[in-house]
Computed example of a mutant assay.
Amino acid sequence: MDITPDTEQTPSTNITPAYYRQVLGKLPTGVVAITGINDDNEKLGLVVGTFQSLSLEPPLVMFCVDKSSSSWPKLRKLQKFTANILADDQIAICRSLSRKGPEKFENLPCTEGPLGTPHLDGATAYIDCLVTAEVVVGDHYMVVGAVSHMTEGNGDALLFRAGKFGQYQPLEIPTEAARSAS
């Protein structure tokens, strides 16, 4: 399925890709490594910043990947993947998996998950999925996965905002009693 905006319904704008990134870059996203392994025992992976829950009943997740990705066509053939939610100390893993070429997994310790897909050691969560849908939306593929297994790891998730990596910092919100005392 290809979802192409109706040009008669889409307002004519002069929004450049750079300005689009600048504005939407204000919203932090999680950093997720999508991993799989093919029949030749080659580990495959890519990094996405558009991963989220889609449905509770049944449990579904979704992510988006650029149509120009050289990794997604290889992963697509597997029809299964693990979404590794990277921890805030895993920037090097993110950078490694963002490269092109077979050495992406060089020196990246991982274990085999329930679907036979790589679980990157130290991730904050592992979500094992079967691909149930893929839709072309603009210049991306939107991929839907049915969750078959989930495992919670430790630590906080790595975040990405305005072109920089970061980590979650909870706000100290004063209670009503503390506000009235001041």
Rank of each mutant, 00 (worst) to 15 (best):
C110K: 12
D2H: 14
C129W: 00
C94F: 06
A33E: 13
G25P: 03
K74W: 03
T132V: 14
V48C: 15
R21K: 12
A123Y: 00
A178I: 03
A162S: 09
P28Q: 15
P109F: 10
T29G: 10
D39E: 13
K43W: 01
T16G: 04
P73T: 08
Q169R: 07
P59G: 07
G30R: 10
V137L: 14
P11E: 15
V131H: 03
N38A: 05
A123M: 08
T82W: 07
E134P: 00
F165G: 10
N107W: 13
K43Q: 11
P58Y: 09
K67N: 05
E103W: 02
F81Q: 00
G30Q: 08
S12Y: 11
G153M: 11
A92Q: 10
R99H: 03
F51N: 00
F105H: 08
A181Y: 00
K100D: 07
L27Q: 11
P118Q: 11
E57W: 01
G49D: 10
R99E: 00
S182H: 05
V143M: 14
Q79N: 11
E57Q: 05
I127P: 08
T50E: 15
D40C: 03
D89W: 01
A123C: 13
N38D: 15
Q167L: 10
R95V: 06
L24T: 13
K43Y: 01
G138T: 14
A123G: 09
I173V: 13
K100S: 09
L78N: 06
R21P: 03
Y168F: 11
D128L: 08
K100G: 01
A181K: 05
S182Q: 14
D139P: 07
Q90V: 04
D6E: 13
V32C: 08
V65I: 09
V131D: 03
F105I: 14
I85K: 04
D128H: 13
G138R: 15
P109R: 15
K67Y: 11
G30N: 09
C110Q: 08
L46Y: 05
G45F: 02
S98F: 04
P118D: 11
V61N: 05
S98H: 04
R21W: 01
D2P: 00
F165Q: 08
S53Q: 13
G45V: 01
F51S: 03
A146Q: 15
K100C: 01
D121C: 05
F51D: 06
N41C: 04
S68V: 02
Y19H: 12
E57N: 09
L60V: 02
P73D: 04
C129Y: 01
P73Q: 08
Q22G: 08
S182V: 04
A177W: 00
F63L: 11
A18P: 00
V31R: 11
P17C: 06
K100P: 00
V131N: 02
E57C: 07
A157T: 13
A177P: 01
V137C: 15
Q52H: 10
N154P: 00
S12P: 00
H149L: 10
G155H: 12
N107I: 03
L171E: 15
A123S: 15
G116E: 09
Q52L: 09
G113D: 08
L54R: 04
N107P: 09
G101D: 02
C110P: 01
Q90T: 07
P5V: 02
E8N: 14
K164S: 11
L171Q: 14
I93K: 01
Y141T: 07
A181N: 06
P73W: 11
G45T: 12
S55M: 06
S68Q: 14
V23F: 12
P114M: 15
G45N: 07
Y168W: 04
K164G: 06
